[in-house]
Computed example of a mutant assay.
Amino acid sequence: MKNPTEEQLEKWHNDPNNWKLGLFYFNPEDERVFPPKRVKWAGWTVNFANTKSVLAFIGIVVITLAIIYYK
C-alpha cells in the first residue's frame, strides 16, 4: 500500500496481530523502514516483515560491532 493515511498507520500500530510476542512488529503491508515502537515515545522499531527494514537493522548491528571490534 503506497502512502497510507494516518488513520491506517494508527490502525496497524494498534492491531495486536501486528505485534509478535507483544514486542516485534511484523506487518507486510507497512513499508516504513522504522515504524514507531509499541509505546511511541520510546523511539522506533524494526518491521520484521519488511526486507528493507531487516537489512537496515543488520547493517546497523554490523557497523556497531565493527566499530567496537576495531576501536
Results as ranks from 00 to 15, higher is better:
1 M>V: 14
2 K>S: 14
4 P>E: 01
4 P>D: 04
4 P>Y: 02
7 E>Y: 02
8 Q>M: 11
8 Q>P: 00
9 L>E: 08
9 L>Y: 03
9 L>V: 09
9 L>Q: 11
9 L>P: 00
10 E>F: 05
11 K>W: 01
12 W>P: 07
13 H>N: 08
13 H>R: 11
15 D>P: 00
17 N>K: 14
17 N>L: 06
17 N>D: 10
18 N>E: 00
21 L>T: 05
22 G>Y: 00
23 L>A: 10
23 L>K: 14
23 L>T: 06
25 Y>F: 14
25 Y>T: 04
25 Y>L: 03
26 F>P: 00
27 N>P: 01
28 P>S: 08
28 P>W: 04
29 E>L: 11
30 D>F: 04
32 R>A: 11
34 F>L: 10
36 P>E: 11
36 P>Y: 13
37 K>E: 08
37 K>L: 11
38 R>F: 04
38 R>E: 02
39 V>D: 09
41 W>L: 07
42 A>G: 00
44 W>M: 10
46 V>E: 05
47 N>G: 06
50 N>A: 05
53 S>W: 03
53 S>E: 01
54 V>Q: 06
56 A>V: 10
56 A>S: 15
62 V>R: 07
63 I>R: 03
64 T>D: 00
64 T>Q: 04
65 L>C: 12
65 L>I: 13
66 A>G: 12
66 A>C: 08
67 I>C: 13
68 I>M: 08
69 Y>E: 02
69 Y>K: 14
70 Y>F: 15
71 K>W: 13
